[in-house]
Each structure stands twice: as C-alpha cells, then as structure tokens.
Design a protein around this nucleic acid. Structure first.
Length: 203
DNA sequence: AAAAGCTGCAACCGCGTACGT
DNA sequence: TACGTACGCGGTTGCAGCTTT
C-alpha cells in the first residue's frame, strides 16, 4: 500500500509508534513528546510511557469502563475522556498498527461511500483498526486520492464534451464535486465480498 | 548546512446521546 | 419529567519528523 512515510528509508519515528507502547516502555525505545501542563491538576499533551503502563495496569484489573474512576485509580492527572481515548486508540490489545493494506483501503472506500464520515462504524468493519486511524488515513491519503481522481474525471469529461458525446452525461459529477453527491450504487454489489481479494473479510 | 514548507499522527475539544437519580 | 454525569463520536489542532529549496 501507499503509506508513503513507512516506505521511506528514514522512518524511525513511525516505526516506533507502530509497536506496542508497553513493550516500548520495557525496552525503552519509545520517543516521548513533552507533555504540556497548562493547568496543574490535569495533564495534557502526549502520554508518557509511565502513564501508559499505569493505565494499562488499572484497566487490566478493573476493566475498560468508568473512565473517570480508572483515571483516579491509576493516579493519573488525566480526565477519563483522555484515558478512554488513549486506551481505545493506542493501548488496547489487538490493535493493528502500520500500513493499511490494499484490501483495507478498498473496504474503507466502499464503506465511506455508503456511510460517509461515520468513522466508528467503518472502523467496526476493520478488525484491529481504530476510528481515529481510519479518519486520519482518510484525511491524509484517501481524500487526496479521490480529489486527484475527480480532477482526472473532469479532464476526461472535458474530452468527452469536445468529442461531442456530452449528451450521455448531463448535469453530473464534475460541478457537483464531493463524494456525497448523487451517488448511486447497488447495495448487493457493494456488500459482495465474494471476490477472492475480499477473502480475508469473509474469514 | 539551514530554513521553510509539508505530512501524518496523537490528542484535544465540543456536541449529542444514553443512563442514573 | 428534569437534571446531572459519563460516554462516544467526528472535527480540528499541535507538533515531530521529513522533504525540498
């Protein structure tokens, strides 16, 4: 797939982010961003490995619920909301990190066409992926790809017009722009994962 | 080598909804 | 029913690292 950065030769930072943070704590690999603390009671900014460890320990005992309780039990100067986010997007087991495969990308595109920006729903269909990750991936990769395709589509359309075949199309795509515009598709076809490239989904 | 601009990700914020009292 | 609190979601921002000039 096209995770440009991960394909580049110098991606130490990214690679370190794609490993288990608890493991990072143990082996001391993780690079930390300075945690800013505007107010003394509540920490903001990047999580430290100590915070990660504490949070994971408390969740292991009490479960991933009652986030404010968890925050206080862990002795973290964080709000429950922040703890939840950290757990859901980073610490949770079975999180798949790293490059999004072609199949996953294809599925994201299909689901986005169907659901729009319902990232959590889309993420629910992609085991191990978080809504935040998919949202980021969409904003940084796929939206650009789509724009490029649309541009290309506009050029093609111009050519069609020039060739006098414009009547086949009419008031469509180019001017309307965005992916939400008058999209029609066959639901059965949409959810048809019989193609062998979607075998992994059926599994 | 240094500065400027770009990229991608983690984290924050605000809002709507669900739930308990 | 009304109110307060917690949770979950989507949009947005901040910043480290990378690339280009």
């Amino acid at each position: 797939m096209t995770n440009l950065r991960s394909h580049s030769s110098s991606n130490h930072y990214r690679l370190s982010n794609h490993t288990n943070p608890i493991l990072e704590t143990i082996i001391g690999v993780k690079k930390e961003r300075p945690a800013s603390s505007k107010r003394s009671q509540i920490n903001k900014g990047a999580w430290t490995s100590e915070e990660d460890t504490k949070l994971a320990e408390v969740i292991a005992v009490h479960g991933a619920k009652s986030w404010n309780t968890i925050a206080s039990k862990a002795g973290l100067k964080r709000c429950g909301k922040s703890c939840r986010l950290r757990w859901m997007n980073y610490l949770r087991p079975n999180i798949k990190r790293g490059n999004i495969s072609e199949q996953e990308e294809d599925l994201i595109l299909r689901l986005h066409k169907l659901l729009g920006n319902r990232w959590s729903l889309i993420a629910g269909r992609l085991p191990g992926r978080t809504d935040n990750e998919i949202k980021n991936y969409w904003n940084s990769h796929l939206s650009k790809k789509i724009k490029q395709k649309e541009k290309q589509g506009c050029k093609d359309e111009k050519r069609l017009v020039e060739n006098g075949k414009e009547e086949l199309r009419e008031e469509n795509t180019c001017a309307a722009g965005g992916e939400d515009s008058n999209i029609s598709f066959d639901v059965d076809e949409f959810f048809d994962f019989s193609d062998e490239k979607f075998e992994w989904i059926n599994r």
